[in-house]
Design a protein around this nucleic acid. Structure first.
Lengths: 227, 227
DNA sequence: ACCTGAACACCGTTCAAGT
DNA sequence: ACCTGAACACCGTTCAAGT
């Protein structure tokens, strides 16, 4: 089977790691992480699956590299005069990246080896808290609480991967067969999300501010107590 | 190949849905969700993989049923005089279940169809907040913030699936090659977890109390404002 | 140095055949 | 009604062979 771009030339670029990663991210963004198979990825690049192994060690290596590449999209050093504004901006940016690349949200927690971009991110987040004056014990808890909220919300949002239109349809069909009298609160909750005010999109920032407010209160109590 | 238990009798129980689910949960608990394949599960039950399809529709059905079965382990109605104590108890119980069954933590967010146990759980959680007097908009945000924290923490904890001993070893070997001067905060963070006070296990409850405190403050502000 | 065909050991699942 | 052997269409990955 002859192909139009079989011979080297302008139409057929050489494969390299960056091209593999970009194609893998584009595929996972567009069709989900399950669609990302070695054969499918290779096909999109006009190559056989086995060629990929010249540029990546294996699929785990590919996933780690993909995650680190999108992690690098996080805005680490937003402007803002105080720790709260800067931490908030960083959290919002991290959350946006995980929502933009849904597959990255669950790699975020499940991959055990972390790359340079992730190290920079963690270092910046911790530095921000230390400069704010959090003592080690409180700093550690504060960091993890914020992280939990970011990844928790991204994964919840992602677990319901429907746009507004799809959601209304599914909700409506669900409500027809739903045992409303058995689960009245759940029914009311679904109804709220169906015809509630469109702006239910501030849920992430609501919880984030709740957490940051609480941390700020502890921080000042801690400092005045120590002084 | 003759087997000792090939013929019906006391040594060879009939297969049924409950036995399939129990075996699947035991396997996933013991060896992780990746070890749960239809062939492996069948083997543990002394049967061929295809026999399983007489009791479950497919693997998705199996996963949904497994999740709902462990979700039923959550203590829904703890005692406590106020909403805060009851909500706290329910959250702690839900978190404990997800930590006890690590595979369940990510099914929790990724499965779109929810079973009866999950419906009971959500209904109880929402009811607790409504009885506390949260108005619809605040109630919805409160519910999701608590949920995010539960699943976020369970997944983070699970992303580092090592006991204390393993963690010290891995941390120590990491610290030997780690570019400390490049990521000083991250290095300090790892060191803190390595030889910090053993009781770093209250992180979940720290964040939970932070959130509940904030919600209680908003609740009373809301009520006094309305009165 | 990079690419590939054939192969291996796995998956979930279908289907006709057994009892 | 339940169980099974053989098969299908997939996986990730290895390896010897090509250029």
């Amino acid at each position: 089977v002859p192909r139009a771009t079989d011979q080297p030339g302008p139409g057929r670029e050489r494969l390299n790691r960056a091209r593999v990663l970009d194609a893998a991210i584009a595929l996972a963004d567009a069709e989900g992480i399950d669609a990302l198979t070695m054969r499918r990825l290779a096909q999109g690049l006009g190559v056989e699956a086995m060629s990929l192994y010249n540029h990546i060690a294996n699929k785990n290596d590919l996933l780690d590299a993909m995650l680190d590449r999108v992690t690098d999209e996080i805005e680490l050093h937003g402007d803002g005069s105080d720790w709260r504004r800067r931490t908030r901006g960083r959290a919002v940016s991290a959350h946006a990246v995980l929502v933009r690349h849904p597959w990255a949200a669950w790699l975020w927690t499940s991959r055990l080896s972390i790359g340079p971009a992730r190290m920079r991110y963690v270092d910046a987040a911790l530095l921000g808290l230390r400069e704010a004056g959090f003592a080690p014990g409180l700093l550690d808890r504060a960091y993890h609480t914020i992280e939990n909220h970011i990844v928790g919300h991204a994964l919840q949002a992602l677990g319901f991967p429907l746009d507004t239109q799809q959601m209304k349809e599914m909700g409506a069909s669900l409500m027809r067969t739903f045992p409303v009298e058995q689960y009245p609160e759940l029914a009311a909750h679904i109804r709220y999300h169906l015809d509630g005010p469109e702006g239910g999109d501030d849920e992430f920032e609501f919880g984030l501010d709740l957490i940051l407010d609480g941390l700020e209160r502890m921080r000042t109590a801690d400092r005045t107590g120590a002084a």
